[in-house]
């Protein structure tokens, strides 16, 4: 059931620029760093001479976090906007499908699109390094995948939260403003206590184990998903 609703969701987002944005996000991050390296090549190469790949991955990840946070808000809003704009919630929910599955599919759509973005970013980072003439034999694959995928999982609660807000509220100014606030708060997230979810995508915690942040994010993401499904199932359709 969920798979079929999800495939309907993928049909609905055709021609709605969601795929375009999912590609544009990583392309923008890699492109900006490409520009940064192109303009200051000698300076940065000197700075990172011991570990050029490590330096590049750090620079990429510095832009990834805010991009991920605003990207998940925009994608959630655009996906929910399809129904809001055409007043189609009634029609969608009148179909013989459980409301919980409709909500889950919207959330899953957002998660999958962002997963594709994160994967593309890994590929583009390698391509950027190759273009800059880094040694392809030295690519620290473990580091690269950790730096790109761990924050993705740690940000799961925010993906679900934004889908929830975007689906529930008709005026998309609110979820998008919450998303902008989220991006800015998350940029300063490393200063918070460990329990604050905005800190988790930074992968910092008292134990010094990034996996704890990832697990906390995934767990809260699932809890929010279930809560959102329960609330959405009770919601009246206007």
């Amino acid at each position: 059931m969920l798979a079929r609703i999800l495939s309907a969701e993928f049909l609905k987002i055709r021609g709605k620029m969601l795929w375009f944005l999912a590609v544009l996000g990583p392309l923008g991050v890699a492109g900006l760093q490409g520009l940064n390296y192109g303009l200051r090549y000698d300076y940065l190469m000197n700075l990172y001479q011991d570990d050029p790949w490590g330096g590049l991955i750090r620079d990429v990840s510095a832009l990834t976090l805010p991009t991920l946070f605003i990207g998940l808000a925009i994608l959630a809003s655009m996906a929910a906007g399809i129904e809001h704009q055409t007043n189609a919630w009634k029609q969608t929910l009148a179909l013989p499908v459980p409301k919980t599955a409709v909500f889950a599919a919207k959330a899953l759509l957002n998660v999958l699109l962002l997963f594709v973005s994160s994967t593309l970013l890994a590929v583009m980072t390698i391509a950027l390094g190759a273009t800059l003439g880094f040694d392809l034999g030295d690519i620290p694959y473990g580091d690269l995948l950790q730096t790109l995928y761990y924050p993705f999982f740690a940000a799961l609660p925010f993906m679900v939260l934004q889908v929830w807000l975007s689906v529930t509220l008709a005026n998309q100014a609110v979820p998008l403003t919450v998303g902008i606030i989220g991006m800015i708060v998350a940029m300063f997230g490393s200063r918070f206590d460990d329990w604050v979810p905005y800190k988790w995508p930074h992968l910092l915690n008292g134990a010094g184990e990034p996996l704890y942040s990832v697990l906390a994010g995934a767990a809260l993401g699932v809890v929010l998903l279930l809560a959102g499904m329960a609330q959405f199932a009770r919601k009246d359709v206007s």
Binding site: L21, G28, L32, I70, S77, M78, Q85, Q172, L176
Partner: peptide, 16 residues
């Protein structure tokens, strides 16, 4: 027509 689309344009131009 979409609310988020102009904001996406804005984000692309503001992130730099």
């Amino acid at each position: 027509p979409s609310f988020a689309a102009p904001l996406a344009v804005n984000v692309v131009l503001t992130m730099p």
